[in-house]
């Protein structure tokens, strides 16, 4: 477990060594300040559009970092041939994979937390009152989503090249986010096969509570939170195990 954690922490350090996250932080701050200062036709006390745009940016920027980072974790090790000294150490392939996945998750969570904290602090200055429970649920679901997104990216990277993995990850993520709900009706036209595909696809739309927060809806009931937590956990585990099956048999 210590080795897994060590690999993961190395990846988190790499995130802060690179400049991507700082650029996105600056860009987010500029956007949030610009939108919070905009006055429409002399009307004050308008918050929701800012929450809409701000949260969209928080999720988008986190996904950008998460996918590009998660996709290269294993591919880069193999391309740079640093996987050989790593595997020469008393460490199993599963531990390497777990370490990389954990690192990817930590990186995504760190980015998401930074962006989310920025968004929250600006919201606080706007004196906007929304249930803290809703924000907590949004944050928690965001963490779960990045857990799944990273596991999917690592699984895809076992089969495809870096660019294909990144492209596929973005396509799957945005397709599920935008059309996940309506996909059910479409896929169910294809009888059993359609239903299987529907259940196998990663349902990222389950984790997107943006609309509930924007419109100050009621917090979600406990059964929904439990069900989605279980879904994210099971999906991540299945992705990790299938990635391990592939990685275990791979000739490096």
């Amino acid at each position: 477990m210590g080795v897994v954690f060590l690999i993961a922490m190395n990846l988190v350090r790499e995130l802060f060594r690179k400049k991507d996250v700082y650029v996105l932080v600056i860009f987010l701050v500029i956007l949030l300040i610009y939108f919070s200062g905009t006055v429409f036709f002399g009307l004050s006390d308008i918050y929701r559009y800012m929450k809409e745009i701000g949260l969209a940016m928080v999720f988008l920027f986190s996904v950008l970092i998460s996918v590009s980072f998660g996709s290269k974790l294993m591919i880069e090790e193999q391309r740079e041939k640093t996987i050989y000294p790593l595997l020469a150490k008393p460490i199993t392939r599963l531990e390497v994979l777990c370490g990389k996945l954990l690192g990817g998750i930590f990186v995504s969570w760190s980015c998401f937390s930074i962006f989310f904290a920025l968004f929250l602090s600006l919201n606080f200055f706007k004196h906007e009152s929304v249930s803290g429970m809703l924000y907590l649920q949004l944050y928690y679901f965001g963490l779960l989503m990045f857990l799944m997104l990273n596991s999917m990216a690592i699984w895809l990277s076992m089969y495809f090249t870096f660019s294909t993995t990144v492209t596929l990850s973005y396509i799957i993520y945005f397709l599920m986010l935008w059309f996940g709900q309506s996909l059910r009706g479409f896929l169910y036209n294809f009888s059993f096969l359609g239903q299987v595909i529907y259940y196998l696809l990663p349902h990222f739309e389950f984790f997107y509570l943006r609309r509930r927060v924007i419109h100050s809806c009621e917090p979600l009931p406990l059964w929904v939170i439990t069900a989605i937590t279980a879904y994210a956990g099971i999906y991540t585990l299945v992705m990790l195990l299938s990635a391990h099956l592939r990685f275990r048999k791979r000739w490096l």
Partner: peptide, 22 residues
């Protein structure tokens, strides 16, 4: 799950909140 995540209230914005659409 997807139904529980969606909002199904058939309500309009309060008078004080109506500027939000602008």
């Amino acid at each position: 799950i997807s139904r529980a995540l969606q909002e199904h209230r058939l309500v309009h914005l309060e008078k004080t909140e109506r500027a939000e659409v602008i």
